[in-house]
Design a protein around this nucleic acid. Sequence first.
DNA 1: GCCTGACTACTCGGATACCTATTGTCCGAGTCGAACAGG
DNA 2: CCTGTTCGACTCGGACAATAGGTATCCGAGTAGTCAGGC
Lengths: 169, 169
Amino acid sequence: MQISKGVEWAAHAAALLNGLPPGRGLKAEALARFHDVPAAYMAKQLQALSKAGIAKTSRGAHGGYRLAKPADEITLWDITAAVDGKGPAFRCTEIRQNGPCGLKPEDCKRPCQIAAAFASAEQAFRDSLTAVSLADLAGQVVKDSEPDHLLAMMNWLNAEAEPLSEKSA
Amino acid sequence: MQISKGVEWAAHAAALLNGLPPGRGLKAEALARFHDVPAAYMAKQLQALSKAGIAKTSRGAHGGYRLAKPADEITLWDITAAVDGKGPAFRCTEIRQNGPCGLKPEDCKRPCQIAAAFASAEQAFRDSLTAVSLADLAGQVVKDSEPDHLLAMMNWLNAEAEPLSEKSA
DNA sequence: GCCTGACTACTCGGATACCTATTGTCCGAGTCGAACAGG
DNA sequence: CCTGTTCGACTCGGACAATAGGTATCCGAGTAGTCAGGC
């Protein structure tokens, strides 16, 4: 079981977007440079956030990304689902219907107990991630960080973040 | 995020092993045939169960597999971990230490909040699976199945299950 | 007739190919801003 | 000097390769039963 590396990047990127002043945006290249990851691949994750309605984009000159919603309405699960997909991790192939003692499909009204157990576990996983919003993360980061580091980040954001045009996708 | 297909096979195989009479065993080929899956790959999953101490094996003529522990001491998480690995699904690469505003390692005493959130979610996932034992599954299956189907399974087991030698790995 | 030994058949175990999904990259589509020409 | 148009540069978006991990397979290691030979 493995979660795409892009989820980590997208989560950190979203957290950074949350930190920039209102009306400002960051382009994909800047977000990638901040985290020192390949720009093109980071752009791919940002696209996913955009499609999911988590980030807004502006194209053209002075384009870039910014959050589409207040940080407290964006959960870690939203980001994970956007990048990694919403599909279940455990894919029941109904092998109980196979083989010499296979069940007939009409006898399978009850879901496979194994699949049901995994579905329940995945629900617990989702619930746990849904309980964490970007706003929570930002609060923790601010509380845990050294003051001079926060200052450095603010300076960097003010230098990189550009006002972007109002039109957005 | 995706769980290996082998987990499903291993779980069903373990459930079947739980159903056979004491002192009897099933060979990998029979377990594969019962579920209509490739024998060699099923054998691979059974090996994993064996290494994890969930199943006992006997080699040579009249060899085969049987459970190594009572069914109520074997959880779905045990099986999942045996086949899919115990490693975390979310792999934090500490990108917060990268880039122009990267944190110094000595400032990273606190774990990354994003990684911590995922660790917590995965713990919830594990807990949910740990709460389900093979014995629970067997009980549900018996309760949900048609009587004639149970009879067919018993007949098949009695035909295929052979007494296996006591020596085991 | 009984014991001993080796042989054979059968099964598991790990090492080996293949194939899908993740990872990483590129070029075209679209947009904005500025420069320029005309009024 | 102001305005409309054109051009150019910049950024996102989706299509295109490379690679790692899951999927599938095969052959060797090891064991138990069997059979033959000797006592």
